[in-house]
Design a protein around this nucleic acid. Structure first.
Lengths: 178, 178
DNA sequence: GATAATTTTGTTATGGTATAACAACTCAAA
DNA sequence: TTTGAGTTGTTATACCATAACAAAATTATC
């Protein structure tokens, strides 16, 4: 039950890179290059830039948000452009789709097969990806008991992250003392 | 195929349920009535009929599919009508939303608090709801370890159901022998 | 290099999902 | 009976996603 990676960056508006997120991006891009070459896939300009832009966002990015960013940079501005890039990146395992948000998130472990399990904060909309082999195994076993052969898992947990919970508690304290 | 009370039942193509689905619907509606009265909520005509229609479908029903059915019966045909009904039913815990399908499903256990965990067949699109306290507890514990307070869980597993797996095997066997 | 096969991208159009905003109506309580 | 909360009607719009076919770029093969 190792916590593999967290993307809970406190990303207040206009305060983009106050941590080593650049490193995440570089690593992800390098991994992407490697994987694509290994698999004979082409990480074209638009695909590569889409992946970077997704990583540059600290929160899951909607398809049309991404499209707007790409369009600003001179890429074609029609929806198929972005959906093709997303399809490619999803198929390559380089990003995940957060179904409950219709949004896309860089995958921190594209180099090894895994399922994307997410903790999504209702308040700040930050998303943490977590990995939980115990749960994965339990789900497979549970499905198998019903003769069901598992192919994909959508595990999206929403609630309050630690930061937002602290803020809420503070606010309540101020409220009661006043 | 099972025959319903007074309405037409149009989920015919390939449904896999042999039970008397009427009973499920009746139970669900009775539970809904009770719960709404207990909580001072109003199960109006359109809400009630929406819930029935969702239950009459053996598969998750899209908002616009539901809207069409309601419109056929003389209800208003504008989207807000159906989304309001869906919002009410979701809030009351009478239905679940299957995020990965953008579709809605009757909740079989509205009378007790629970999370909707789903097994969704890629082939026949039937959905089985399952309940798994072990997983629920594990997820809560996992989230808590990161200071995260869980509010909702989206657990949607897709793959091949037992029936479709059997059919696929049969088809393969015929293919190889021919 | 020329050519063909394959993949990727451009372009137009459309379909599917969901909500905002405000007006009108209903029903029950004060 | 007025009031007020909740519900529904109505119009408009925003957001999410794909179909279908044309054009261009890339790769493989001659």
């Amino acid at each position: 039950m190792t916590k593999l990676h967290s993307h809970q960056h406190d990303h207040d508006a206009g305060h983009a890179h106050d941590h080593n997120h650049n490193h995440c991006i570089d690593t992800a891009l390098a991994t992407a290059e490697t994987l694509c070459i290994e698999q004979g896939q082409r990480l074209t300009k638009v695909r590569r830039r889409a992946l970077e832009l997704i990583w540059e966002s600290h929160r899951p990015l909607g398809a049309y948000q991404l499209l707007a960013k790409l369009a600003e940079e001179g890429f074609n501005s029609a929806p198929p452009t972005v959906y093709r890039a997303l399809d490619f990146l999803l198929a390559a395992g380089l990003i995940h789709k957060v179904e409950s948000m219709n949004a896309y998130l860089g995958c921190a472990h594209a180099d090894r097969a895994h399922k994307g399990y997410f903790l999504i904060c209702d308040e700040c909309h930050n998303v943490m990806e977590f990995d939980y082999q115990d749960i994965h195994a339990a789900l497979i076993a549970k499905a198998a008991k019903q003769g069901f052969e598992l192919r994909a898992e959508t595990i999206e947990l929403t609630g309050l992250c630690a930061d937002c919970k602290a803020k809420a508690t503070d606010a309540a304290a101020v409220g009661t003392s006043a």
